[in-house]
Amino acid sequence: MTNAATDMNAAPSPDSYVTADGRTIGGVVMEMKNITLRFGGVVAIKDISFDIREGEIRAIIGPNGAGKSSMLNVISGFYKPQEGDVFFHGEKRPLMKPYQVAQQGIARTFQNIALFDGMSVLDNIMTGRLNNMNASLISQAVWWGKAQKEEFENREKVEKVIDFLEIQAIRKTPVGRLPYGLKKRVELARALAAEPTLLLLDEPMAGMNVEEKEDMSRFILDVNDEFGTTIALIEHDMGVVMDLSDRVVVMDYGKKIGDGTPDEVRNNQDVIDAYLGVAHD
């Protein structure tokens, strides 16, 4: 590996900087160090390192089967890497269950949408706030005092998310009845409701038409802009990725072949080869 990739790996500086459009990008929030993930004999991720900085939109791109989703699953605890460490807020993270990762403030969406089909949109988004409720079981059982106050507070926050993502009209609809594009938006809403420090989006625009893609792009930018949420996303649509993200990791066959700003990545020969289809050795 040559070019920009190595530079970014060398020493992620903790210094913050301001982007061209005036957002402040802070220090490193999450760092993946030499991650290797195997399924039996298949190596899904091979010795990959990269970092995510506070407040940035970080994209992971690559052809099908490159290991992008696996990488996201490692971050969110659904897969456990055989080698390598994950550092969150500078601390080495022990192997964690997905729900523990979620409790640390890392929310995610899924490529194939994982919503609670039997519940209403509102209830689905309320589940995003499960970790922000601390009232004791007894207090909740009698539905009094702290539990009641909490429910109202959480409900208010959820309503804000609903307004933000413009899904007021469907708030009482069971999720199972919604069309695909709206389901994706509800899933984003549920993740947002948790007020995450890091938001992971697995192909947020997969299967959408141009209009829906534009809407989703706008929401992602707004979320990042208004709440300062750090976002890591996987996307196939190169145009979208280049417009949205501050930095891009490029994967191919489980390896990292590029890392840097969209412009750096676009001019990276390895990346061009991977996307245009040069024979692999």
């Binding site: 979620a102 995610r108 994982a114």
Partner: peptide, 27 residues
């Protein structure tokens, strides 16, 4: 209990979709 409490909601979440429940921090 299942309609209005945190645990109740988590219970319904688990009943509906395990993966999604994990992703919102339900054990």
């Amino acid at each position: 209990f299942s309609q209005y409490t945190k645990q109740g909601r988590a219970m319904r979440a688990v009943a509906d979709d395990h993966q999604a429940a994990l992703s919102v921090g339900v054990s």
